[in-house]
Design a protein around this nucleic acid. Structure first.
Lengths: 250, 250
DNA sequence: CAGTGGTCTAGACCACACA
DNA sequence: GTGTGGTCTAGACCACTGT
């Protein structure tokens, strides 16, 4: 139960403040500290790990910005109730999302290839109108039942050093995972518009609902850590099978 | 144009790092630094304001967590493109939201008073089932046109020291503003579920749409900075007049 | 190479919460 | 009162970026 107290790795590249934060986060998630409990104070951490106050402060501040604790002068660092979603996961894709909900995600690829950018896609991806962009059109399935549609356009700059993802890669894995591992691109931020609309005949057939059935729409532009466009995607979900969950802070 | 360089107030209660951050944020928002520009380095800020490095770091780190800049070792603090919504504003209520969109918000109160908590409301507000909670049922208007419905339940603990808001107060101002100024309660976090559904006859009449018209629904639980429940609210919006915009980071 | 931010130390004074 | 986190100083060494 005092696992988190063992000495830090002072040789490796991992900052000490991050190691301390991870130890404490782990202790929270395994229930060693419950909601309302106070974490060890800065002074205690200094003694425990033999670090200076700035280092333990960095660790605790990190946990605060990540939403695990609140810090109150005179009281301490108080553990918050467990959240279903961490904000970091807000950017995760469909497959991560489904797995978190205990469902098995899969994809059916309807169309994949290069296409000329329309005006709105060109604006979103910051390319000239008509430039060839990578398009994929997929059905999103949870436990083999259709739950949504994804129309996704990817910036051509991502494929400088390697080809675009194949249909197999799109069917098996997460697109964001593929971009990370193959292109070295990390998601930095995204802007999403969420709307509601009635299903048109095409959507209705693919999603196996009546025409006019309410759908939940999300249009998202995502950018890498240098704020350059990665993807523009249009998602349509069956309203009886899917809802968005948001966590907001401050 | 060098307004932001004048000396800091070292006597007042405002931390120096915050003053520096506000100066820089202001300089960004007035266009003195555009997207892609680099802000003054930590060393430059040290000289400019006569502070230590930890202080200028705090200022720049604050701007990074607030989403104004990215910091890159070896390169500097780079200004990001302007965002329509700051994450801090994600928690703002309907009136702030509408004003940001250039519309004039107003409310029509349908019902207001105390009511016994249903099971789901009791769970959200962490009171016993049947406890008297404060309910308000309002139509949300933008430029005098109905845009949504709000059914809101407030925790009774908020009204220990003063009565609940009157119908006048609800019609004129923001509920969150009233809670802040009258009860001293500040919003800390909120969890929102966003769904889509077809309008039922009652909703259709109030919102002036056909029955079956797609609506955008939001169910939100909000908590104060000590993570105690404040409000549970059910919002229904006309899908042709309203959409949600989200900013996600990291 | 010089400049940048990332990390870390070892001190200091303060306001705040609680017993 | 004691202990908490909030702020601040004045140093230090490092890895990374651009020239």
């Amino acid at each position: 139960m005092d696992d988190w107290k063992h000495p830090l790795d002072t040789d490796g590249p991992t900052p000490m403040w991050f190691q301390i934060a991870e130890r404490l986060r782990n202790a929270i998630e395994t229930g060693m500290f419950g909601p309302g409990d106070t974490l060890p104070s800065e002074a205690e951490l200094n003694l425990q790990f033999g670090v200076s106050r700035a280092t333990s402060r960095s660790a605790l501040n990190d946990l605060e910005t990540r939403g695990y604790i609140v810090r109150r002068s005179g009281r301490g660092s108080i553990v918050l109730r467990k959240r279903v979603d961490q904000p970091a996961e807000a950017l995760s894709g469909f497959s991560e999302d489904m797995r978190r909900r205990g469902l098995r995600p899969s994809y059916r690829v309807l169309k994949v290839g290069r296409e000329a950018a329309t005006a709105s896609v060109a604006e979103a991806l910051e390319v000239r109108r008509g430039a060839k962009v990578f398009l994929s059109h997929r059905v999103l399935l949870a436990d083999d039942e259709p739950i949504g549609l994804a129309l996704s356009w990817l910036a051509p700059r991502l494929f400088r050093n390697q080809g675009p993802p194949t249909a197999e890669e799109l069917e098996t894995g997460s697109l964001y995972g593929w971009l990370q591992s193959t292109c070295g691109v990390t998601m930095g931020r995204a802007r999403t518009y969420i709307e509601s609309a009635a299903a048109d005949p095409v959507q209705a057939e693919i999603l196996e609902v009546e025409e006019g059935f309410p759908l939940l729409l999300a249009r998202r532009n995502s950018y890498d850590t240098d704020d350059k466009p990665i993807e523009h995607v249009d998602l349509s979900f069956r309203s009886d099978r899917y809802r968005f969950q948001l966590e907001m802070r401050r």
